[in-house]
Structure formats: C-alpha cells, structure tokens
Amino acid sequence: MTTPHQSRADRRRATEARILASARELFAEKGFDRTTIRAVAAAASVDPALVMQYFGSKRELFSQAVQAFPAPPTATDTDALVDQLLATLGLKLGGLPEGALAMMRSMLTDPAAADHVRVALGRQIDGLGAALPAAEDPELRAALAVTALLGVTIGHQLLGLAALRDAPTDHIAALLRPAIKALADPPE
C-alpha cells in the first residue's frame, strides 16, 4: 500500500504548524527574551533560516504563537456572570494553552507582549463592565474582578504557589465567589 502524496502546500502548513508548536512551548517555558530562533528551529527540526523565511522575525513568530486569548464574559444576570467568571478560572487553573502561558510569562519583560495582554484584558474588562448592572464605576469593578482572577492564575500557573497549586479548583472558586460577587453587584 502506498502513502498518499502530500502536496507542497500541505508540507508547508505542517512545517509551519510544527514551528509554531515548538515556539509556543519555548515561549511558555522561557518567555520572549530567553527564547531564540535557533532554539525554536532545533525543537521543530528545521533550519533557523526556514523559521525566518516563514515568520520574518522573532516578534512575528511570537505574535502568531500566542494569538488566542479568552473572550469576555457574556452573561447578564449577576449570579450567572459570577459563575461564568469563576468557570474561566477553573479552566485557567486546569492548564492554560502554551500561547497564553507564553504571553503571561513574557508580559513583564517585553513591551509588545505587555501591549498584547493589555488589549486582551481591556476587551475582557470592557465586556464585563458592559455586562455589569448599571451602577457606579462598572469599568473599575470589572478591572478589579479580571485582575484578581489574573493574579490567581499567575500564582497558580507561573509561580506554582503551594497554597493555590494544592487546593481544588472548586474550593478556590468558592472562596473567591463572595469577592467577585461583591464586585459584580451594584453597591446599595
């Protein structure tokens, strides 16, 4: 039995996907500054010149490797909104995609990564702020909720804080629920 012939375009897409997967893994592990084109090429079993041919620069490779960021919450009922926010925390504590980890690891040392995160978090804050009941400071309350969850995610995923790492996700969510609910409910 013969294997089907793979077209040149298919081989190119497979090579590009292999390079991106290697880049995601290395950026997640080392961040932007400490990841090199040579290391990505070696991990993908290609020549460094091919990485540059496909992506043009380390910055473009990084941008394509970390594109995905979560959508802002969409629920309108306060309890459902809190549930949705805490459910995303459960997903984050269960393991983030390597692209998201790469972005988080790089955001404090690389201005472009910081800008990317700022835009993504801004979209989440805007979406949450629009979903909050009309009250004083919806954008500030949304920013506090989003960054509180970001802090928990960083403590768990990047810093490996024992108290967060060892606690069940549902217990963390239960402890956070009153704080997130207080931010989501309009003050009386």
Rank of each mutant, 00 (worst) to 15 (best):
109 T>Y: 01
80 A>D: 15
69 F>L: 10
173 A>T: 03
161 L>S: 03
141 R>A: 12
163 A>L: 09
68 A>N: 07
15 T>N: 05
44 A>H: 07
33 D>H: 11
24 R>V: 04
37 I>H: 00
129 G>Y: 06
48 P>F: 09
13 R>A: 15
62 F>P: 02
105 R>D: 04
113 A>N: 06
24 R>W: 00
15 T>A: 15
46 V>W: 02
16 E>W: 02
19 I>P: 07
171 H>Y: 08
8 R>H: 11
100 A>H: 07
161 L>F: 10
120 A>Y: 08
162 A>H: 08
64 Q>W: 01
28 A>D: 06
154 I>N: 07
116 H>C: 05
16 E>Y: 04
60 E>L: 08
67 Q>S: 13
20 L>Y: 05
93 L>T: 14
128 L>S: 10
26 L>E: 02
148 A>N: 04
107 M>L: 07
77 D>I: 04
103 M>D: 00
94 G>S: 13
175 L>I: 02
51 V>T: 08
78 T>S: 15
29 E>R: 14
183 L>C: 09
125 I>D: 06
123 R>Y: 07
154 I>W: 14
57 S>E: 06
35 T>N: 07
68 A>I: 10
49 A>D: 11
139 E>H: 14
103 M>H: 03
154 I>L: 14
106 S>T: 08
141 R>Q: 07
128 L>N: 08
11 R>M: 11
161 L>G: 01
85 L>P: 00
131 A>C: 14
127 G>V: 10
30 K>A: 13
101 L>P: 01
181 K>L: 14
52 M>R: 09
66 V>C: 09
111 P>L: 13
162 A>W: 02
157 Q>F: 02
100 A>I: 05
172 I>G: 04
173 A>R: 07
27 F>P: 06
120 A>N: 12
28 A>Q: 03
119 V>F: 12
179 A>C: 02
134 A>Y: 00
23 A>K: 05
27 F>W: 01
67 Q>A: 15
41 A>P: 00
114 A>Y: 03
178 P>R: 12
17 A>K: 09
47 D>S: 07
78 T>L: 08
47 D>G: 05
164 L>S: 08
156 H>P: 03
106 S>Y: 09
37 I>Q: 00
141 R>S: 10
20 L>C: 08
43 A>Y: 06
149 L>Y: 11
158 L>H: 03
177 R>I: 13
168 P>N: 03
103 M>S: 11
88 T>A: 11
24 R>P: 04
143 A>K: 04
2 T>Q: 11
61 L>D: 05
133 P>D: 12
164 L>F: 12
62 F>E: 08
42 A>V: 01
